[in-house]
Design a protein around this nucleic acid. Sequence first.
DNA 1: CCCTGATTCGC
DNA 2: GCGAATCAGG
Length: 228
Amino acid sequence: MSWTDERIDQLKAMWEKGMTASQIAEELGGVSRNAVIGKAHRLGLQSRPSPVKANEAARVKKAPAPKRPETHAAAAVDAPRDAAPTAPPAAAVARPAPPVAAASEVAADDAPVAPPPPRIVSVGPGGFLRQGPGDQQAPIPPAPPRRLVPAKPSAEIADKTSLLDLTERICKWPIGHPGEPDFHFCGDKVNPGFPYCVDHCGRAYQAQLPRGTRRPPPPLPFGGPRVR
DNA sequence: CCCTGATTCGC
DNA sequence: GCGAATCAGG
């Protein structure tokens, strides 16, 4: 891939939006995290809290990297986009919004919290409240849950690896069938270089048996029903 | 381990 | 100009 004007614009936008180089690289596709960083710097986009840069003082002290021999081998081969289609940019889902516990229940027992006495001036069509110019609505009614409860998403879906959880190093072996409510992916760490974990690599890649040999279980992902 | 960004330097 | 390799902090 090359840096077209369009891609550069995207890079700029995302970079300035605060996305990490990895996220940007993933979004753009066809480029590595390093490529993104390199390009960003070349473009002059710069700074942004670097974990390794925080301090300016303590420098010039480390032994500089002495050697860098390396066969410029192409290690950049795009990993198989197997079951990891870049789903419609779930951009806004970059970081899952921490599900705030239902405030109503949480603050149930002790509630010295004075509910806002809304000064309703009048009610307009559709039930919208009309307010006078001076009724700018107080800053914020900071939802004041006294205790925050973990708020599990759902006992069902918890711990299931969904399509959106898949990354380069997560086993993409499907569990169940697409469409089923509990369909998910293995989610283990992959066998480096493969799209599956070691276990599932064993299932996915089987030695070719001599002709005529009867082999009982060939069912593979999506193969037949009830393979687990 | 995983993640970050910064830098280097052969291509 | 590009980006893999490497470094280094969290």
